[in-house]
Design a binder for these strands. Sequence first.
DNA 1: TGTCCGATTGGT
DNA 2: CCAATCGGACAG
Length: 203
Amino acid sequence: MSGRVLPRTFYADPSLRVARRLLGKLLVHETADGPTSGRIVEVEAYRGPADRAAHSFGGRRSARNEAMYGPPGHAYVYFIYGIHFCMNVVCREPDVPEAVLLRALEPVAGIAVMRARRALADAPEWRLCRGPGALCRAMGITRAENNADLCRGALRILDAPDVPARDVARTPRIGVDYAGADAARPWRFAVRSSWAVSGRRLR
DNA sequence: TGTCCGATTGGT
DNA sequence: CCAATCGGACAG
């Protein structure tokens, strides 16, 4: 599992740009269970105080979303529906709360470990990291990884070839119908050719 | 302190 | 379509 760790400057940009560029990169997590990794194939940009769908909408700041206000290149992990965790990558400089939600990966390494963690009988590989909650479960990402530095440590993102524009789809974000006009903005990015992408089939 | 509901998932 | 399951956000 080699490859350069993405430098902090990669994340010090608007979430829309970071989201697009994150496609194709490799998320790695080394735990006591063993290493797991996957290629990022679906993400969503959350754009800060002006974005009704963002946890930082209106400048909301609390213990839960504090990581969003921290330096770029860190994880923002939150607990949702009493069951699942979701992982975001924090963007931009401190006090500018933008982030990118990781929604799906193509499993690359540690597939047996992922399958064991998912506790889904005979889960096919393409299902292991499909969806933000599923991805965290398979990768062993929980509350403990909130605020983790992605540039050094057990949870990190490695550089890998960019996905060409013709293979990238843009759609509205999923599960944010409450966000009014912002619900329709095309801030979800997904790799068309990937079988691991969540939701409805892309074109 | 009490109520409401979510950036989800998997099974019916 | 719906239950699972809990803690954040906000009203009072």
